[in-house]
Design a protein around this nucleic acid. Structure first.
Lengths: 156, 156
DNA sequence: ATTGAAATATGTTCGTA
DNA sequence: TACGAACATATTTCAAT
């Protein structure tokens, strides 16, 4: 993992720009400019500064998985029998499209993953036939998300 | 929670449009149009269809929390002593800006939350002074993310 | 850091197929 | 659905402050 050491100071104007774009990545720069009361060119330049500092990691359209039938989210604690196997296990998890996140964690598990499935049956299939099938996985603990109440980014 | 029941069929062209915009929300529609080989107006119309179906939930600039000094991510399993208290607890969690996600979950915990802190000291402070301070919270179990290996959206 | 202006590129609507 | 044309906006760069 690369540690980011950039020194950057963001003022109130930067924050306003970021908040607008974190809320809607397609907000026109000029409309932000009118809102704030500075020129479009100034916003453009500030955005370049923020990108250069790597504070802006990119932008994404957010799609609603439920519309595609993906209605079951779950967290799975994964026990691996040998720490040496972790990179291979992660590589296998990457090949499972239902895996949305994968973290090395402290505590009982080696890995904590977040997966998104169509329903419980689909979840069980992924668990039993995809995840348990990975070499090194000895045991898993599953926590189904019944409802996500908070989903946001860090405040700027 | 509102269940989405929209019926929608997305073809290969829709997928290409979505993939481009999920990857970079500011990709110009016209450049996608040139790539695919259809008109900008057609893309525009398809995007409207996808938005109407609520498949597109919005768009976001993604910011890199590390640049702001937020380098410690953790998952916290939260035990609540009365199920009736959950909505109030969630309301309190909403007021803690470090809380990025909050899920009602099956299993031992009442809630699973994801939090983002500057460092371990900050994490400990949030745990001991903010989360443990919430009425109804009896116990927590913390799993620090040592490294996030996978972070993505569902495939289209 | 900020501006306005100019050049280029894009977004959006509409009539038509 | 898709197209092209027309019009409205936005992005991007640059010289000047």
């Amino acid at each position: 993992m690369k540690v980011v050491n950039e020194q950057i100071t963001i003022d109130g104007i930067d924050k306003k720009i970021l908040r607008a774009l974190m809320n809607d990545a397609r907000t026109p720069i000029l409309s932000i400019a009118r809102e704030i009361g500075i020129s479009g060119a100034a916003i453009h330049q500030r955005l370049r500064k923020l990108e250069d500092a790597k504070l802006i990691a990119g932008s994404k359209f957010i799609i609603n998985p439920k519309v595609l039938g993906y209605k079951t989210m779950a967290f799975i604690g994964v026990y691996l029998d040998k720490a040496m196997r972790n990179p291979d296990a992660v590589k296998e998890l990457e090949r499972i499209p239902e895996v949305m996140e994968c973290h090395y964690t402290t505590g009982n598990w080696s890995l904590l993953i977040k997966i998104l499935c169509k329903d419980n049956e689909h979840l069980m299939h992924i668990l039993n036939h995809k995840i348990q099938a990975i070499k090194g996985v000895s045991r898993t603990e599953t926590f189904i998300s019944l409802d996500q109440q908070i989903d946001r980014q860090i405040e700027v």
